[in-house]
Structure formats: C-alpha cells, structure tokens
Amino acid sequence: MNQPTLVRVFCQAMGCLCEVYLGGEAAAELEAIGRNALTLLQVWESRLSHYIADSEICVLNREAYQRPVPVSPELFRLLERLKSLTEETEGAFDPTAGRLVRAWGLFRQGTLRGERVESPSKTEIQRIVQEIGWSRVELDTELQTVSFQTPSVELHLGAAGKGYIIDEVIAYLRQQGIERALVNAGGSSIAAIGSPPQSGYWVLGIADPQDSERTVAQALLCDNALTTSGSMESAITLSGRRVCHLFDPRTGEPIAFQGAVSALTPNALEGDALTTGFYVNGEAWAEERCRRHPDTQVLWIETDEGRRDPRLARYCATQSRFLL
C-alpha cells in the first residue's frame, strides 16, 4: 500500500507567502502541476491587484466613473458574486469601499503593525460613506460593462481577492485530477481538496491573534476553506489605541472588537467575505448565520491585552470542526 507523495511548492504573491501542497503519485508530475498553479495564482494577482497599475481592477477604478468600462467575463462574474456577498452580509463586507481604506491611510503595501494613523474628519468619512456601495455601481449584464456613479467608488478586493484566486487554483487542481491538495495564501485564506491519506481531514493550527507562535485551536478541513479575518498583524494605532484594520463601510468607523474570526466555508471567496462580515457585524450575527447555514462554521477569538488566553467560542449547526 503506497502512501501518496506530498509535495510543496511556494512563491511570493499577493503580498504574502503562497503555498500549494499536493498529494499524489509522482513528485515530478505534482511539482509541474504545482508550478502551473502558482503561475495561475500570479496571473490572477496581476488582474485583481490594487498594487499593479495596469491590473483590470486598477483600470476600472481609474476609468469607470468617466465611462462604462468593458471587463472580462471572469471579472464580471466575480463582481456579481461580490455584490451578492455584500447583500448577504448586510453591507458589512463591501468591496466598493476602497476610498474609505484610502481615507484611513491604509492603502499601501507592507505591514502596518502599530502604525499611527490620523483620523480623517467626520464630514469626510460621512461623505465617502454616502457615495459608496453597490447601488453606486452599475453592472451591465448585457454589455458586460461596469460604471461608477460617483467618483468615491473604488473597488478594493483586499478582503476577498485571495479567496477568489484560491478557489480558481483549487478548480484548476481538480481539473488536473488532483485528489489531495491544500492551497494557502498568507495563512488567512486556505482551501483544501480531499484530505491526507488515512485521515479524514487536513489538521491546521489556528494561531493566537496576539502571539502567532501559539496555537489556540485546530481546524479540520476537507473539500472546504478556512479563512480568518482580523489578525492584529495589520493593526494600527488610533488615538493611542491599537485597533484592527477593518472598518464598517456603513459608518466608516474602525471596528472596536479585538481578536480574530475564523470560518470554515464551502469555498474561500465566501469565507473571506463572511469572516469580514462576521468581524464587522459581531458575534451574535455570526452565531445566527451559522445556525441558518450548516455549511458555515465559526471560531470566534476575542483577545484581551490584559489576559494571556483569548476567549474562544464555536458556532455551528452540526458538530464543530474546530477543536479546542
């Protein structure tokens, strides 16, 4: 009985380490498929990144207020899905709010750990909040064009781009006949095909948001995705207080909650959008969502600077695949 080989390939992309783990028979063949997967991932990054000036997203952001911009069928479908995810999260996850991120001075590459940020003025924030949202974006299904009705709309896929790209990679791997795989983008978005041999699940450790060397729980993955929002890695200092880099797009204000939210979902795009929504909408909303959607499970991690161990809570309609 042969144990299938496990091969890992990786690259730097989307501002983080991206890894593909592949299980199968021949290492050389797995490596070749893994390399193609990394290429696919980088190609998608070049289309969706904010930090690549000629990406489809950047072109859209530059031109869609002046005129309807034709976009690729893939991007059009992605925008439609994002729109429906905004609706599902009642506006808590909103990729049209790029201008808000910019107003808070968070629009740049690299780590923002502990960075001191000046609050933008209340009027400025209120103006932006009123001028953003999917109601200000016209998706013309007939012509496959996108236009913005206000100059404040700026699409920012930071919260969900990784998830979408990982799903694309997973689809490619399945197409190649891969039956065991794990795709990881920076630890915050992970998706799996199948499981390791003689094991029902991929066992992944969940890191303590305050101390990445510690694990506080485990997640069991099989044919689904694990996403996390709210790592303190990207926290900023605002009026002397460290806060998360996430904002409520409906009010324009940063979220007071400190900690992280991990979710197991059928795919990574949904996971990315939902964890952002959970973080913004709060614990009760997450609990309610999990009760109504058995395919979604949540691990709520609330940290307290005065306490070593975070408070953990699990929400799910069936048996939890988060182990404490």
Partner: peptide, 14 residues
C-alpha cells in the same frame, strides 16, 4: 495551548 497540526500562519509567513 499546545495543539498541533500545521499552522499556516499569516504573520509567520508573510
């Protein structure tokens, strides 16, 4: 606090 399993950690890998 001593749980195992591979940690694919954002902060550790970025």
């Amino acid at each position: 606090n001593g749980k195992e399993g591979m940690v694919l950690n954002a902060s550790a890998t970025k």
